[in-house]
Simulated scan of single mutants.
Amino acid sequence: MTFLMKRRTLFGAGAAGVLTAPGLWGGFAMAEESTGTGAASGGGAFRTLKLGSFKVTVISDGTRASGNPHETFGTNQPSEAVAALLAENFLPTGAFVTGFSPTLVDTGSDLVLFDTGFGEGGREAGMGQLARGIRAAGYAPEQISVVVITHMHGDHIGGLTEGGKPAFANARYVTGQVEYDFWKDTARVGTPAENGHKAVLEKVVPLAEKTTFIADGAEVVPGISAIAAFGHSPGHMIYRLESEGQTLILTADTANHYVLSLQRPDWEVRFDMDKAAAAATRKNVFDMVATDRLPFMGYHMPFPAVGFVERKDTGYRFVPVSYQFDI
């Protein structure tokens, strides 16, 4: 199955640091290689897809149920509007579920992990399942050669360490320079970002000597490149995977809910640190995804977190993968 892409640029420079990404687009074909729950190994759910010569495995770190959707999504809208959109999409109006899905990419030369979930700190609540999922998918944490951190919120960096030691003993690390500089800065002390600052000091700073700090357009390994998509956090990055002319976009936290963030990209989200920039990034990224019929993987999309979007009213409708990669 081939998805043709016409544009060569992700988006032009825009508000609050939304940067360009020349040379992004090519053809895409992705076929499902295997699916499993990992139950036999005591691990989390995973799904593996083939991208050219790459093997892409999406792993569930767990899910979390929360109440009062309006307190998180559409915070600048009447609560009735949020409830109405949820009801229109056959979803409960008083609660929502968030999934957390790190991605493992086997390039043949490198084993690259994108984000690390909650780690041991999330296990009491049923999360922190990444390591089990990695093993269930047929790998071991010590095999991972590169760990990429899209941004430094706790559900992305919590699994960097285990028992006070690096969870991926043989890995080097890659993350955005802007993101790291923001969270490391002692100016965060006494602000709402102080807890994030402390988490970065604990989880990320000790790994700095093994970390490459990158900017927009940087290559992580051959076939994987970074794209600045600021707003959700000050240095939030998304990534382009390309192998044998086939492409998949890892959108990280550009959208945090498959209905509330995509169908209404202008609606403010509590976790977006620069809400105007985050909304601009959502529209730029998913307008391109819709126009060029691109597959994407979103960290908080319903597992296995891979799908497409089409335009719907003032936003986009999420179309999850089904059997199109089975034939």
Rank of each mutant, 00 (worst) to 15 (best):
M1H: 03
M5N: 12
K6V: 14
F11E: 05
A15H: 12
A15W: 04
V18Q: 12
F28P: 08
G38P: 11
A40Y: 08
S41N: 09
G44D: 10
G44A: 15
S53K: 14
F54S: 09
S66L: 15
T72W: 13
P78M: 05
P78G: 05
A84E: 10
E88N: 05
G94H: 13
P102W: 01
L104K: 12
D106S: 02
D115W: 02
A131Q: 11
R135K: 13
A136V: 12
G138F: 05
I144D: 01
D155Q: 03
I157W: 06
Y173T: 04
T175K: 01
Q177L: 14
D181Y: 01
W183T: 14
E194C: 01
G196L: 12
H197A: 06
K198L: 14
V205Q: 08
P206A: 00
A208I: 14
D216R: 08
V221K: 09
G231K: 08
S243P: 06
L250K: 02
T251I: 03
T254N: 11
S261A: 14
R270C: 02
F271V: 13
M273T: 12
D274Y: 09
A280E: 03
F286N: 03
L294C: 10
P302W: 07
A305Q: 01
A305R: 03
R311W: 06
V321T: 06
S322A: 14
I327S: 11
